[in-house]
Every structure is written in C-alpha cells, then in structure tokens.
Design a protein around this nucleic acid. Structure first.
Lengths: 203, 203
DNA sequence: GTCTATACTGGGATAGAC
DNA sequence: GTCTATCCCAGTATAGAC
C-alpha cells in the first residue's frame, strides 16, 4: 500500500519501520494532538533518531497525510460496505449517517485525527487534503439517485450534502468536547431530520 | 473593552498599539492564515520589534484569541439585532441562518479567522475557545421556545441546534474552498430544510 | 540501504539595557 | 515602554558511519 514515488519496491525493514513510525504518530496525535506530536517525540517513542524518521518520510506533513489517508481508508471501507447493503436511497442516507457516527463513537482517536488532520492540512498548512471524489459528492449522488427514482423531493443536492456532512461533523465535535453527549440518539435524530427535509412522500 | 488582567487602566499609547497590532494581525491572518501570520511579520507590518509585540500581548495565542473575540463580538451584535426583530421562533431560525451566512459571504476574512481560529484553538492548542453561552444554546433556546408555543414539533433541541450550526459552518467552508458556490440559495435551502424538519404544522 | 551526529533555519519567548 | 540580544525548541538538510 502507498507505493513509493518512483514505483520501486520497498524493503522489509523499510516497510516495518514505516508502520512502526506511523503507529507511534497515531498514538501521539490521538493523545496530545497533531501540533504536540513532534518529530522528536515520535522518534523517541520509536527508539530511533529524528533523522531516521525523516529518512522514511520526507517531512512531518507526509506523516500526517499518511496517518490521515489510512484512517480515511478504513472509514471508507466501512462506509462502502454499509452503503452497498442499503436497499434504497433513503436507506443509504440512514446507513451513511449511522456508520459515520458509529465509527466516531467507537474510534475517538480516529475522530481526533480526522477532525484535526483535515482542519490543519486544509486550513493551517494550506494543503488540500480533500478526499479524491470530494466528500459531499458521495452524499449528493445518493440524493440525486433518490430524486430520479422519486423517493426524494426536488432540492439542491449539493447544499443538502454539505449540510448533512456538516451536521455529522458537528455531532462528532460535540462528542469530543462533551462526553455526556450520546451519539446514538443524535444519529437517530439527524436521520429523522434528514428524512423529513428530503423525502418526497409525507413523513 | 477587554480589560487588563490586573484591572489596571490602559494608557492611551498602549491602547493604540494594541489596536494597531490587532489590525495587522487580522490582515495577515486573513491573507496568509494564522500559522503564517508570524510574530515577525506582524511586528514588521506594525513597524516595531517582535519583543514589542510581546510586550503588549503575552503570547501569540492571545493575539488570536483577541482577534477572534472581536470578530465574534461583531457577529454576535449583528445576530442579536436580527433575532430581536424576528416575530416568531421559526422566523428567528431563518434570521439566524440568513444573518450568519450573509456575514460569511460579506466577510471572507472574518470567516477565515473564525473557522481557522476556532479549529486551531480548540483542537490544535487544546485551549477551549467556545463562546460563553455555548454556541448551540442560542439556537437550542429558540427551538425550545418554539416548541412551547407549539410552532415546532417535539425533538431534541440540543442535537437540532448542533446540526444546524454544523450545516452553516459547512456551507461557510464550502464558500471558502469553492468561489463558485452561491451562498444565498444555499441559505434559502438550509432554512427550508430546517423548517421541514422542525415545524409542527405540515410544510 | 539504514541510520547517527550535527548543524542550520525560523518561530516564539525571556532578560535586561536604555 | 521599547528595543537588543539571546535562548529554546521544532522542523529540516547534510555528511558520513556501518
């Protein structure tokens, strides 16, 4: 996974070291946040020197990027599975919301990495880390399919998708900030809101 | 505004310097982002030394905090005005959405400061910058009042408020990332979604 | 190919002169 | 009240040992 830039094959040690470094980075980011997960600390935890870390990764940002894409891939896989099992577009929307929020509830470290990672790469460093097909497209496509099949009323799918994702993210943030906030009822509410707002047939 | 820690009064020059420094910081953050708005650059733009900047502010984060609260205060004032003019809770929700999105459309620099500032202070540095009465409360209260007066159906006002704010923020982010994205239709859509999802009477 | 040592840069923060 | 000098730490670059 994640081939080298020049397509050359990776040695055994290299692969092992990369995994080890990434694992250390994940732990540190989850515990102390990205800004406090310094190269020195990562190196220390991996029992190697700073320079050794930079031998395997071009720079610190590349480590974040890698951690981020791995987390994202894991989530995407779960999402793909849930979506393929959905019988109808409205079902798919419900599955999307539930899968995302369930993941967030079960992987607080992953959430921190995603929230902080996406925010810091996009905003702080200016690098565009948006997922390949922009995130809202997945949802917008479901809405569009539902409109064609008549299950959704006519509305701007782009805006609806952005709002839904924003709502999910906000719930995730609240979960991080407030441990008392229950994710499951929140997910149910959000699905309910979305259905009421988008379904063609009366609720 | 923003008294000193020890309650002592601020001299004229001190006040002027603070304003000047904040103005420079605002410009730099808006143009290049918080991370790239270094003390050196702020000092350079204000024609003083780095240390002089730190004489007036304890550290860089305090500058951000100040910029943030000023931007937030401005926005809050506009919001309060719009809300007080609203005749009913549903009207208030519409006014809330429109005011926020209109502000965002008209003040791209302000948006950048808010988005980046809130994200980086809360997550990267770990400082809690949530506004005094947490942001969702304002909206949740409107929903609650509307439920009492019968205009809203029964739902979890906390979650609804979080979702609505998340949706607004997501629209703001999209506006930043994609200049083609039109804010006004998006605001209309969001108000429409919210009404459909929350009104007690059929739509 | 893998790594250590070391040195350089740039950012934030402090001490002390004026 | 403002500056200079200095320090520390983070990220990065290079040389070279093995």
């Amino acid at each position: 996974m994640t081939p080298t830039r020049d397509g050359r094959k990776r040695t055994f040690v290299e692969e092992a070291r990369r995994r080890q470094i990434l694992a250390c980075a994940v732990d540190l980011i989850a515990e102390h946040g990205y800004a406090n997960a310094t190269l020195a600390r990562i190196a220390e935890r991996a029992h190697i020197s700073k320079a050794a870390v930079l031998y395997h990764f071009d720079n610190k940002e590349e480590i974040l990027r890698q951690v981020l894409t791995e987390t994202l891939d894991e989530l995407t896989a779960q999402l793909a599975e849930a979506l393929s099992a959905a019988a109808s577009p409205p079902d798919a929307i419900a599955a999307y919301v539930h899968t995302l929020i369930a993941y967030m509830a079960g992987h607080p470290a992953g959430v921190r990495i995603l929230v902080e990672g996406l925010a810091s790469t996009e905003l702080v460093t200016g690098t565009n880390m948006r997922t390949q097909p922009e995130r809202w497209r997945i949802v917008a496509d479901i809405f569009a399919r539902g409109q064609q099949s008549g299950s959704f009323r006519d509305f701007d799918t782009h805006t609806a998708a952005i709002c839904l994702n924003g709502a999910i993210d906000a719930i995730a943030s609240e979960m991080l900030a407030n441990p008392d906030y229950a994710p499951l009822p929140a997910a149910e509410s959000l699905v309910d809101f979305t259905h009421r707002a988008t379904l063609a047939t009366g609720y």
